[in-house]
Nucleic acid binder design. Structure first.
Lengths: 186, 186
DNA sequence: CTAAATTAGTCTCACTTGCAACTATCTTAA
DNA sequence: TTAAGATAGTTGCAAGTGAGACTAATTTAG
């Protein structure tokens, strides 16, 4: 695990493109180390964490990620909600949610009831079987999460959570202004 | 941004499934708030950050993520390296890297030279055009990264980096023991 | 009341990607 | 030297997914 843990010197990517004018004092970053590049790190970390978790919900219960997200959303909320809502709050495409819901209904984990007020939309909720699955799965996943985070102290976990909060919040703003579409709803 | 930041009220739906043997001192988390669940947060954040960056390399330069990873790896290293190496250190499947390399060769961004020592493998490197592209792209991406992280203080960024270091390191261990395959090489 | 616009959900299409088979090459051992 | 096994890279195939068209239902405007 030889990861050049180079502590970012207080230098910023000065100047621009071609000009290789850099001096020791303010080194222009002309190269980019993927291992220190946050977007790459996040992607890789997310993929690895997902894969570590998938053994719980995928291998054991045959759920894929979208299905797990539906299950998690319905299980967390006490009242039934629409597919649209799940799509919004998990930020998953509605067609993906639609397919996940179909699969879960097939397996009788989720059921839907018509909404008399608006017959385009269905209210989704867990069946008893779905509830049982949810309650069996949750402790496993939480344990796995703790296992992954066990390398951090309690304080560090709080710190990490807080830092992610900030980045998330800031991204939401950025995105809303850039592609203000279906993001504002939830 | 109404995110149910609900600090898990101490009231939980007891009852269901089997053993509910926990007491208040050690509250059994029977529900799981996706928004506080680290794997979900990482996935979502990584996706959003990627999408924020893709405007730089995708829309502007027509690179997809695997292609960008190849470019980044070759641009960072001073000496040519194999596709295998890129696959290992970016943790991307070799077939994906293979396709990305093909596309980049097609566009004359990457070229490969035979390795006389081992004619199965090719040494990959950026062409002059590839170098130029790399050097034009890097400042943009670094700027974007800074933009995304601008919600954090310098100290907080260091903290975040350090926390991710720890989690990454711990995951590498976990994975190596669990699925010790192509991970150990790099 | 009717027409246009909007919304929930489904479905088809195109694209991406991981897997695994395959080729070519190299290594090891008999 | 030859055969078996490993390795680098490519490719066919199948599964998953986002975009966007489409249907049905609702809302809004005239």
């Amino acid at each position: 695990m030889a990861r050049t843990s180079a502590s970012q010197p207080p230098a910023r990517p000065r100047s621009v493109v071609e000009a290789d004018v850099r001096d020791d004092a303010a080194p222009a970053k002309k190269r980019l180390d993927l291992f220190h590049f946050m977007p790459f790190r996040l992607n890789r970390l997310a993929a690895e964490v997902s894969s570590a978790l998938s053994s719980e919900y995928q291998a054991r219960y045959g759920l894929d990620i979208p299905e797990w997200r539906v299950l998690a959303t319905l299980g967390f909320r006490s009242d039934p909600c629409s597919a649209q809502y799940i799509a919004h709050c998990t930020r998953t495409h509605k067609s993906t949610i639609s397919r996940a819901v179909s699969a879960l209904m097939e397996r009788e984990i989720v059921e839907r009831v018509e909404n008399a007020d608006d017959r385009r939309e269905f209210r989704l909720r867990l069946t008893r079987k779905g509830q049982a699955l949810y309650e069996e799965l949750i402790p496993r996943l939480l344990r796995k999460e703790q296992e992954i985070l066990s390398c951090l102290s309690a304080q560090e976990r709080r710190d990490l959570g807080r830092l992610l909060d900030k980045v998330e919040a800031s991204l939401d703003l950025v995105q809303t202004s850039e592609e203000a579409d279906a993001k504002d709803v939830y």
